[in-house]
Design a protein around this nucleic acid. Sequence first.
DNA 1: ATCGGTTACTAACCACCGGTTACAATATAA
DNA 2: TTATATTGTAACCGGTGGTTAGTAACCGAT
Lengths: 219, 219
Amino acid sequence: MANRQRSRSAETRQAILSAAGELFAERGYDGVTMREIARAAGCSHTAIYLYFKDKEALLHELAVGPLTALEAELAAALGDVGLTPAERVRAMGRRFIRFGLTHRNSYHVLMMARAGRVDEEEPDLAVNALRNRLFALLRRGIAAMLPDGTPDERVLAYSRVVFFHVHGIVETYRLSEEAVPALLARLGSTFELSLDVLLAGIERTAAAEAQRGGSRREG
Amino acid sequence: MANRQRSRSAETRQAILSAAGELFAERGYDGVTMREIARAAGCSHTAIYLYFKDKEALLHELAVGPLTALEAELAAALGDVGLTPAERVRAMGRRFIRFGLTHRNSYHVLMMARAGRVDEEEPDLAVNALRNRLFALLRRGIAAMLPDGTPDERVLAYSRVVFFHVHGIVETYRLSEEAVPALLARLGSTFELSLDVLLAGIERTAAAEAQRGGSRREG
DNA sequence: ATCGGTTACTAACCACCGGTTACAATATAA
DNA sequence: TTATATTGTAACCGGTGGTTAGTAACCGAT
C-alpha cells in the first residue's frame, strides 16, 4: 500500500506548518523567509510550494484553527445566560482583545483578508466566512443590549463602534515586544476601563436615540 | 559662486521627495521600490542615497510636515474657546481621524516610530517628540472634560481609551481602497456616532468614578 | 525481479529588492 | 589651466519569493 508515501508527505507538510507557525509567532510574517521555514522544517524551500500555493497560503492555513477557536469563544460568551446582555458584550470584547494580542498573525489574517477577491479560491473564502460569522456574533451581542426594536441599521452602526474600539486596542499593542501576560498585567485595568467607557457610552447614546425616536413617533 | 550646483542638488532632492510622496500615497511604502522612485524623479536609484540615508529616512522626512500640521490643528481645536471641553475633544478626534485617513503613510510613521531607539540619530527623535506632543495635547483636552481634581493617572487612562478608539477607526480603514471623501460620505455619521459613544461613556464613567472617590473620601 | 508511473523532493535558476562601492562627469575655486 | 569638490551612475552584493527541469525513491502490476 501507499501508506508509507502518504505518511511521509503528511509529516513533511506538518513539519512545514509547525516550523512556520513558530517562526511567524516569534518574528512575524514579514520577518521570516521561506528558506528559514524550510531549514527549520528540514526540507528545501521549494518543497514548501508543493504543499502551499505561496507564503500567504501558509499563513492562512495556520490562522484558520485559532480563528475557529475564537469563534467558539465568542459564541460561548454570547450564550452565557448568567450574564446581562452588556456583560456578554464585555466578555466578547475581552476575549477578542486577548485573542488579538495572543494570536497576532492570525488576527492580521482576519483583518487583512480582502473582502472582494475574485481570482482566489478556498482559503481566502474560508477566512472571509469566518470574519463574517465573527462579526455576526458581535452584532447579535450588541442587538441584545440595545433597546427593543432598534433597527438593524443602528445595530450595525453600534457594532462598528464596538469593533473600532477593540480593534484599536489590539492594533495599538500588536507590534509591542511585551509578552501578553505582562501587557495584561500592566494595562488590563485600562482595557477594562476602556470597555466600561464603551458600554456606558452605548447605553447612554442608544437610550437617547430611542427617546428621540419615540418622541418623534409620538409627535 | 556655487549657486548652480546648489540649486541643481536642491532640485534633485526635491524631485526625489515629490516622486516618493506621490508614489507612497498611491501604493504605500512597501509597494514602492527605490528604483521606481528614482525613475519618477529622473535619476538613478543610487542618487537617492546621496540625499537620504535609506528608504525609511525618505518616509520620515515626508511625514514631518503633515504631522506638524496635525499638531497645529489639534492645538487649534484644543484652544477653541467657543466649544465646551467635550466638544473640543470631539473636534480633536475628528481631525485626528481625518488626518489618519488622509495621510496614511505619515500616520503609519507616527505610530510605528520605535519609542526607545538607541542607535538612531535625528529623524526618529523628531517623530517621537511630535508623537509625545500630540499625545500631550490629547491629555490636556481630556483633562479639561474630566471632573476637577481627577488625578493624572486617571487622565492618562482616559486618554489611552480615547486613543484606542480613534486609532481603531483609522486602522480599520487604513488599507481601504476607498477615497477619503467617499469614505467619509459613507461612514462619517458612524464616526460621529462613535465619538458620541466615546464622549458619553467617558462622562458617565468618570462621573461614577468621581462619586465613588468622593463618597470614599467622605466615608 | 523488474518495469512504468507516480510521488516527494531538490539544485539551479529567475527577476527583483534595498543598499554599497568604485568610478566618471561636471562645475567651481585657485 | 589645473586641482578639487560636487553630483551622479554602472556594476555589484547578498538577499527575497517563486518557477522549472530533473532526480531518486517508492509502488503496484506483470
